[in-house]
């Protein structure tokens, strides 16, 4: 065991604090996009899937690795596209309608 495990554990614990700290003040309307966005981020398992397929030397490992890459790609691509689509809908309302509305108030 020794140093390597300790180093990984350090990274894990510090990251856990960062993870809770940075989203502590998220407004409730962003709960769903945040969930969806972080869903895409754990799609980083794609990197792991590539590595296991890349080192596969039996048929079993190849099949499992191949499946893993497909599933992980679905996670990454689907996750980011869905999140973008959700957030796309948040955008116009903060920018477009504000202009005319303010003018009305001014009149």
């Amino acid at each position: 065991m020794g140093n390597v495990l300790l180093q990984y554990a350090t990274v894990l614990i510090l990251t856990a604090f960062v993870g809770t700290e940075i989203i502590a003040k998220v407004p409730s309307i962003l709960h769903t996009p945040l969930m969806s966005g972080s869903n895409a981020i754990h799609g980083v398992i794609l990197v792991g899937s590539m590595l296991i397929l890349g080192e596969a030397n039996t048929n079993l490992q190849e099949v499992l690795g191949f499946l893993a890459v497909i599933l992980a790609t679905l996670n990454v691509v689907g996750g980011f596209v869905v999140t973008d689509r959700m957030l796309e809908m948040f955008k116009p309302k903060t920018q477009k309608p504000k202009g005319p509305k303010n003018e009305e108030v001014a009149q």
């Binding site: 990984y8 990274v11 993870g19 809770t20 998220v26 945040l34 754990h42």
Partner: peptide
């Protein structure tokens, strides 16, 4: 580890 823990920790809080 970083990406997984980020999602794990923030996900539980969320």
């Amino acid at each position: 580890i970083v990406a997984g823990t980020l999602v794990g920790a923030s996900g539980i809080l969320l």
